[in-house]
Nucleic acid binder design. Sequence first.
DNA 1: AATGAAACGCAAAGCCG
DNA 2: CGGCTTTGCGTTTCATT
Lengths: 154, 154
Amino acid sequence: MKLDSIDKRLIEALQHNAETPVAELADAVGLSQTSCWRRVQRLKDAGVLRASVMLVDRHQVNVGVTVFVSVRTSTHSQDWFDRFHAAVQAIPEVVEFYRMSGDVDYLLRVVVPDIAAYDQVYKRLIRDTQLSDVSSSFAMEELKFTTALPLSYV
Amino acid sequence: MKLDSIDKRLIEALQHNAETPVAELADAVGLSQTSCWRRVQRLKDAGVLRASVMLVDRHQVNVGVTVFVSVRTSTHSQDWFDRFHAAVQAIPEVVEFYRMSGDVDYLLRVVVPDIAAYDQVYKRLIRDTQLSDVSSSFAMEELKFTTALPLSYV
DNA sequence: AATGAAACGCAAAGCCG
DNA sequence: CGGCTTTGCGTTTCATT
């Protein structure tokens, strides 16, 4: 889908605050409320705006600890991957999961309350998927986290 | 703030879909519309529900490539850190930024259209902060990404 | 055909029992 | 704390260019 500079400004606003009233968006971009609303609708329909979600405070729901898990594997069969993929999808503590290039094969971001809870997740992971080479790095501090993507490349 | 099982279910619903009508939430948890609305309000005021945002399709805004950047540093002065922190905050391509334990000092997640664009960000990073030991890993595939935190620990 | 203005209906927010 | 009222916003329709 082709996005012009007005679309860009709408996306920019909405990816920071999904509750921005259409009226406010409208006069920010200098459009009537109706045509502005139609644009937003178009962006939703096209799937550019994928979803509207509420972000939850990590600490208040007791998952203050972030762990990055690097996985190296020797078995690269489709069958193994399918099971691995399904197992990881089913673990709610895993919030991000990537297949990597380079010497690490997979990278996971896991959120848990503490080290003990991480150990549970870790054990579940290696039990469900027969992983061997797994290494964990703990984040001491979250310095930046945003769901807002840069729009300079559209 | 203390969260009971009803709060949990409200958070669960809203962190998947922020547009869920209060009426729908209400009869999902078996509460009147009014008291349900009050609960949601309470959760917002307490900051448990931090923000309502729209998630944008990475590919449609031309940032399909994810790079993890590991930074090792020798200078650990407060002054250097402040400049580093400010520099990274100012780069919109950096969507996550953690201070780590272990042999990597900082970990960044960067989103860009392609390798060439990543090189620009990389150069900006080392120029602005005099970094020396930087290593980049490219994600080949995003297998899971969710903003929904596990609520099993509340 | 595209845009804006104005009416409609629904859901959210305030009030009172 | 639950039901009712009102207000304001999102949505639709219609007129206008």
